[in-house]
Amino acid sequence: MSVTRALPRLDADNRAFWTGGAEGELRIMRCRDCETFIHPPRPLCRSCLSENVSPEVVAGTGVVATYTVNYQKWHPAMEVPFVVARVALDGVPGVLLTTNIVGCPAEEVDVGDRVRVIFEQQDDVYLPLFERID
């Protein structure tokens, strides 16, 4: 079962993020001078303006910071309901990923749930989705 999704256009800034799933890796850009994580990924650090930045493989676990259950079919092919959530990643302060929580009924998701990344491949893109850790 593959959900219809709009896919990102890959470029030099975002490729590491969107393709890390091919190796099972969630990659977040990080400053090598001051250790700030930078997301969305850009070629400089928003804390110290250093250009010494590169992707870092992070744990891929986190916690649901907030969420919503979407019930509206925004186009005919959309399957509802589904959960849109913001996940605060473990060990990645200051970064939130908007994503879907999958693998459980939508109404069961709650703030504070522990979650783990799984990747859904579509074409050349590996979408980081999350499932609850029981």
Binding site: T66, Y67, W74, M78, V84, R86, T98, L129
Partner: peptide, 28 residues
Amino acid sequence: DRVDSYSQWFAPFNAISAVNWTAQYAMA
């Protein structure tokens, strides 16, 4: 064919409408 800029951080997860974004603040 593909989304870019800020849209890429929402649209792939079908968080298409501003209601999805606002609802998360309301849920908090």
